[in-house]
Simulated scan of single mutants.
Amino acid sequence: MSIYLVSRHQGAVDWMRHMGHHYDEHLTHLANYEALSAGDVVVGSLPINIVADLADHGVTYWHLSLYIPEQLRGVELSAEQLSKLDAKLEEYVVLRGNSNAL
């Protein structure tokens, strides 16, 4: 089992280290799933369709969750700012539904 941190944000990398969260490899982008195996863990802030793909591959997903005020959207946040915004890791399980329903 490997733990991958997927983030292009240095503040997220610094926050993970500051909070004592372990990961084996940092990726700035998850280009494909070839390196991932069932039982691996991905940590990040990924789009829901990618999280569903990960679940299909038996990969666990932990989301870096926080509520960002409008004035900070699009701003590179530091580890300190993430902590002040009460960032936390939360496990999410996403199932792809019936795409013909709408």
Rank of each mutant, 00 (worst) to 15 (best):
L54E: 08
L77Q: 09
H22T: 13
S2T: 11
V51P: 09
V59I: 04
A55H: 14
Y33W: 14
H9Q: 07
H22G: 07
V51A: 13
I3T: 13
E90F: 13
H26K: 08
I68C: 10
L66K: 05
A12Y: 04
V75G: 01
V13D: 02
V13G: 01
V43A: 03
L54C: 08
S65W: 05
V51R: 10
L5S: 05
H22I: 11
S99D: 12
I68F: 06
I50M: 14
A31M: 07
Q10R: 11
A38W: 15
N100V: 12
A35P: 00
N49S: 10
Q81R: 13
N98Q: 14
E80L: 10
L36W: 09
Y4R: 05
G11P: 04
S83N: 14
H18L: 01
E76N: 07
S99N: 09
V6L: 06
Q81K: 15
G44M: 07
L85I: 04
L66Q: 06
E25I: 07
A12V: 15
G74S: 00
L66W: 07
E90P: 10
G20E: 00
A35Q: 14
L27G: 01
S2A: 13
H26E: 07
L66P: 04
L36N: 06
L30N: 04
P47K: 06
L89K: 13
G20S: 03
G39W: 06
H18I: 00
R96K: 15
L77Y: 06
S99H: 10
V13F: 03
E90W: 12
R73P: 04
L64E: 02
L89I: 11
Y23E: 01
H29C: 15
T28D: 08
M1E: 11
S37T: 08
A79L: 01
S2C: 12
D86H: 15
G74T: 00
A35K: 15
V42H: 11
V6Q: 03
H22S: 13
V43N: 05
V13K: 09
D14H: 01
M1W: 06
A31V: 05
D56E: 15
H18V: 00
H57R: 14
D53T: 00
L54V: 01
Q81L: 06
K88L: 15
L102F: 12
S99T: 10
S37R: 13
V41C: 04
G97W: 12
V93Q: 14
G74P: 00
V75K: 03
L77H: 03
L54Y: 03
D56Y: 11
L72F: 04
H26L: 03
A87F: 14
E25S: 08
P47Q: 12
L72W: 02
H9P: 04
N49M: 11
N100Q: 15
L72A: 00
V13E: 10
L46P: 02
D86N: 13
D56V: 02
T60V: 08
S83F: 03
H18S: 06
K88A: 14
T60D: 09
A38R: 08
G97E: 10
N49E: 11
R8V: 07
H57T: 01
I48L: 12
N49V: 05
N98M: 11
G39S: 09
N100G: 13
P69F: 01
S78V: 02
V59M: 04
W62K: 12
S37N: 11
I3D: 05
E90G: 08
A12T: 15
R96S: 10
E70D: 05
L89G: 09
P47F: 09
D24V: 06
